[in-house]
Amino acid sequence: MELAFYLSGLAAVLATLGVIANPNPVHGVLYLVVSLLAVALVFFTLGAPFAGALEIIVYAGAIMVLFVFVVMMLNLGQAAAEQERLWLQPRTWIGPSLLAAVLLLTLISLLWRDDIQRVIEGGELTAKGAGTLLYGPWLLLVELGALLLLAALVTASHVGRTVPVAAPKPAARDMPTGDADQPQPPQQPARGESSSPAGKEVL
């Protein structure tokens, strides 16, 4: 069991490195799927089949499908077909496949030794246990999570707005107020009293 944990953990780390290091989004997404599956297997080995199943259903299932769809849609174009043929070269899929094979072997070897209860150390976290905890003493966290999702949704919908907001008036725009230590904007015509040496010294 311990070996399974470390193997799937290693697969997760390698796959995640693949996500970050890959310049091509589709390749990255492939690695991401493997990474999520590996994390699910980590959950299984730790005795949390419920969390593992959720990881597969929600992340590797629903969210990854959305990812792949979006990436595919963004890549539509004349060269799309050509691209797709390129993507099917072995060097694209060999990495994720190898990692996935490691996961599969781990899973099979685990299933080979029957009586899964005995190999899991510690208690098993069931859906019922998670539910009674979340909707019992931890109810507050569910509510806070709901508020968090609301805030995230509002943020995304506000910042993602495409309705043109009236552009700021160029007249009101001033000189960039960065690190430049300038006592007066460059547009300002030089005036006797405005550029007094005392003022320059202090500013």
């Binding site: 508020l147 968090l148 995230a152 943020t155 506000h158 700021p168």
Partner: peptide, 29 residues
Amino acid sequence: LASLFLGLELLSMPLYGMLAYAFHERRSL
């Protein structure tokens, strides 16, 4: 630790939106 983490995230998440609120302004975004 659970309420600590969720509280911290709930504090930070809306701040992303608040800081980028005037998103037509480059610096705000």
